[in-house]
């Protein structure tokens, strides 16, 4: 009787875990926002995530069904039947080593493209443009853009445009930021785009993405960087090509405001 109880405990626990995963998206406990990745590379990363999730789900279900079956059968067995010890079964061990090995290798090969296009310069999109230099510091994001119709260079230029905690990018076009930090390690993280990259002192790290939908997304720090880490948040505003150009032009004008003319702008 007691054996059946434990069978049920294990089976119900596994079933509850599966059920919780299944309903999580409906309760906003899944990915942030709409649940959909809003960048091209993010969609590919999500795809990998789901492939792995399916593999894991199959294994999880299989293991739990097998566990439940063994427990149930063992519970029904009369107590005078002797147990069978299968320890040292070479065939079995080879099988359960080789199968996961093959799966892991397959996953490793399958994800290589995504990794390469996100992290390796040779595989970046051809038409990618670096639009901003993002400098993390305790506890904010300072951002530098090139003047309208100019290209961003590594060194600051007199006509650069600056913002803080406000990264604006055009949509449907691969753009890159050049990520730096002024002090300690930080991590540039835009959950809805699935973009995350550590910022390391002394390094200038390119991070590219192509946002697929205009909107305002959270930009947070994902590396514990000090006491104010939790408040190191900004926003990433994705705009259509025209809106972006208009905004940059306006930002440029505000940047070079001389206090004369149409008067003080408060924003």
């Amino acid at each position: 009787m007691e054996g059946r109880f434990w069978t049920l405990v294990f089976v119900i626990f596994a079933a509850a875990a599966l059920a919780a995963c299944a309903v999580a998206p409906a309760y906003q406990l899944w990915f942030p926002g709409s649940g959909e990745a809003l960048s091209t590379i993010g969609a590919r990363i999500d795809h990998l995530f789901y492939v792995i999730l399916v593999v894991i789900a199959v294994v999880f279900v299989g293991v739990n069904v097998a566990l439940g079956y063994v427990l149930w059968r063992g519970a029904k067995q009369p107590s005078e039947v002797k147990a069978v010890y299968s320890h040292g079964n070479q065939t079995l061990e080879v099988v359960w080593t080789v199968i996961p090995g093959v799966i892991l290798l397959a996953l490793a090969l399958y994800q290589m493209d995504v990794w390469a296009s996100f992290r390796m310069r040779e595989f970046y999109p051809q038409d990618m443009r670096t639009i901003a230099e993002v400098t993390a510091r305790q506890f904010e994001w300072r951002i530098r853009y090139a003047a309208p119709d100019k290209t961003l260079e590594a060194d600051p230029h007199p006509d650069d445009v600056y913002t803080v905690n406000d990264l604006r990018v055009p949509v449907n076009r691969p753009v890159a930021i050049s990520l730096r930090t002024e002090d300690v390690q930080h991590a540039f993280f835009v959950p809805e785009l699935r973009i995350k990259q550590d910022a390391l002192p002394g390094k200038r790290i390119p991070v590219w993405f192509e946002v697929t939908r205009p909107g305002t997304y959270d930009l947070v720090c994902a590396e514990l960087c000090g006491w104010g880490h939790y408040k190191m948040k900004g926003r990433l505003v994705a705009l259509s090509e025209e809106d972006y150009a208009a905004w940059l032009k306006q930002a440029f004008e505000d940047q070079f405001d001389d206090g004369v003319g149409e008067g003080e702008k408060s924003d």
Binding site: Q138, F139, E140, R142, V164, N165, D166, G234, R235
Partner: peptide, 22 residues
Amino acid sequence: RDDLARTIRDGIPGTYMPSFLL
């Protein structure tokens, strides 16, 4: 008041005063 708003919104680079843009 506008000066204070600007300082709060933009922070003060070179010091620990961060931006409270949001």
